[in-house]
């Protein structure tokens, strides 16, 4: 459910704070809310996840790196007791890989790669460690691309977020519980909405669709709207020409939101527009 710049059409991910500082493409300050465009919102989600991740980075970094280093050290100690040098090396590499992987918000890559790293280090091949380094660097660039372009592979992030907790409980908890929950919730919300769209298409052309669709969609929209009202609404449009204003919200918020009753669309005005207009 993205916001869209009314000026140039730039689409923002749901929950993205990017637009609070204006549209990065055209500098526009007015944004439209599109409750319907679920399909478009999917690719736009990962950057929001990545954004949400970055502030939490220090915590998770410390936990995951410490955990990875500790585990790697143990495994290496078990496997290669004779050669101390590669052990030190690989643990250092592990720390790097988990570090970069967790920065990219792909917790799984760190979880999946670090054991493989320790395994390869178990063979005590000097040449294997560069490979280990290369592997996680690939997902990292992928993820960072996702942040930049806000396009590709959204299913990867939620999947990887969920997977490691099963495989590596200790590291899963350290690295990705918080973001994992968010991802799972968002993935659920997304998949459930998508299901409704895909269900009618799958069984038949249009027969079964319409009857269940309306009653099912209505409460969702209403719920959504209610939630939006509770969270954000500073100006409520009761009917055309009739408004209710939440003065504290208007005062507290830098931006203000005008919500429409019918289809859930609203317009956000970022206050910079006033200042440039007025001055």
């Amino acid at each position: 459910m993205p916001h869209q710049c009314t000026n140039c059409g730039h689409v923002f991910a749901d929950g993205s704070k990017e637009m609070l500082s204006g549209c990065p493409d055209c500098g526009g300050n007015k944004f439209q809310y599109h409750p319907g465009d679920v399909a478009e919102s999917e690719p736009a989600d990962p950057p929001a996840d990545a954004d949400a991740d970055s502030p939490e980075l220090p915590e998770r970094e410390g936990g995951s790196v410490a955990g990875a280093v500790g585990r790697a050290a143990n495994k290496v100690r078990d496997a290669v007791t004779s050669d101390p040098d590669p052990a030190a090396r690989t643990t250092g590499d592990d720390a790097d890989t988990t570090d970069t992987a967790s920065t990219a918000g792909a917790a799984d890559t760190s979880a999946a790669d670090s054991p493989s790293a320790t395994d390869t280090s178990g063979t005590a091949d000097a040449s294997s460690s560069p490979d280990v380094e290369a592997d996680p660097s690939a997902p990292e660039t992928e993820a960072s691309e996702a942040v930049d372009e806000s396009d590709p592979s959204s299913p990867d992030a939620p999947e990887t977020g969920g997977a490691p907790s099963g495989d590596e409980p200790a590291e899963g908890i350290d690295a990705s519980t918080e973001t994992g929950d968010e991802d799972a919730a968002q993935a659920d919300a997304r998949s459930s909405v998508v299901d409704k769209d895909s269900l009618p298409d799958a069984p038949s052309d249009g027969r079964v669709v319409k009857e269940p669709d309306d009653p099912e969609d209505r409460p969702d929209l209403d719920d959504l709207r209610q939630e939006l009202n509770d969270q954000f609404e500073s100006i409520r449009i009761v009917a055309p020409g009739q408004y209710e204003l939440n003065l504290m919200e208007l005062y507290d918020r830098q931006e203000y939101i005008i919500a429409l009753q019918e289809d859930g669309q609203y317009v956000i005005e970022v206050p910079d527009a006033w200042e440039t207009d007025d001055e």
């Binding site: 020409g241 009739q242 408004y243 209710e244 204003l245 003065l247």
Partner: peptide, 28 residues
């Protein structure tokens, strides 16, 4: 400053509905 703006209150002042609705939006 007010918590409610309703165009109908402008109708008492000899205003067309369209204008009242617009005034209401601007007032908001």
């Amino acid at each position: 400053v007010t918590t409610k703006v309703d165009y109908s209150e402008f109708l008492e002042h000899d205003m067309e509905k369209d204008e009242a609705v617009r005034r209401s939006r601007e007032a908001t």
